[in-house]
Amino acid sequence: MKKIKQKILESKYVYVVLSLLFMMIISSLLSPSFLTLSNLITILRQASILLMLSLGLTAVVITGNIDLSVGSCAALTGCICAKMLVADVPVIAAMLISISIGLIIGVVNGFLVGVIKLPSFVATYGMNMVASGLAMIVMNGGVIYGLPAKFTTIGIGYVGSVPIPIIISGVMCLIVYILLQKTTFGRNVYMIGFNIQAAGYSAINCLGTLLAAYAFCGVTGALGGTMMTARLNAADAGMSETYGLQIVAAVVMGGTSLLGGEGGVVGTVIGAIILTIIVNIMNIVGVNSNWQNFAVGIVIILMVWIDIYTRSRRAKKLI
């Protein structure tokens, strides 16, 4: 029993989980309608798109890099998917093409960072502008709506009483968890993040791993984009704007360090849920929308602060 207690206290996620519980307690005190099954499902459904967008980014951040282009990658792929669907392209084909575009964006990011060796912050910020620019060009200021029901199911459908987006994100989380924690690829992702030079001297394929991480980030970006389109049953070039840097925040709040080598999917899941809860409870209580960004910002800063504080304490234990 004592050992289990010890293990829980030493777990890297303990403070992230505690923060989540704290948020839930505060929220349920603020409103009785927070802690209802239907509201919790709503939160998970809202979180599922943010989560999908943050999954691949988690891998990229663990390598010690960043990808700021996820949001506009989602917008671009969502828009192209919608365009194809209204042009009667089969749903599966439209989705596969969208995901391939996400993949290409990811590979280009990986190329810029890994081969040309641009700082990832600048390279992917540039890619962010390129992708959102492309989305504008594609949409030309228009909005597409009225998508085939077969497609919108992935955004609004249910299996039993569980919304499909939650299922898709859940399955993807599991896949990413296994990839990062239980495979040689995942191990190398962490090793690159810990020390890319030492990884190179250990004959680890740094470039390949980096490219794969970015490519994967593009794929989850595109998946998130198509899910978003299906959920909205519409697409326009600015549809992912609300996510923006929240994608990065979800990853970092969950304890994945921008220094690389630390963190993982579990943290990102909790990070995405916490971000969603803040907005959810503010909407329930009726906080003026002007104050919402302010509050989200404060919570992000606090979470990262807690993470960095507890990380240094954990590190001391491991020395």
Binding site: N188, N195, Q197, A198, Y201, G261
Partner: peptide, 21 residues
Amino acid sequence: KQLGLAVRAPISWNIAAVSLK
């Protein structure tokens, strides 16, 4: 410290870094 090891990684990971595959 800079090239031989990933000093923040566990000892076991460092030992398996080359031979992982």
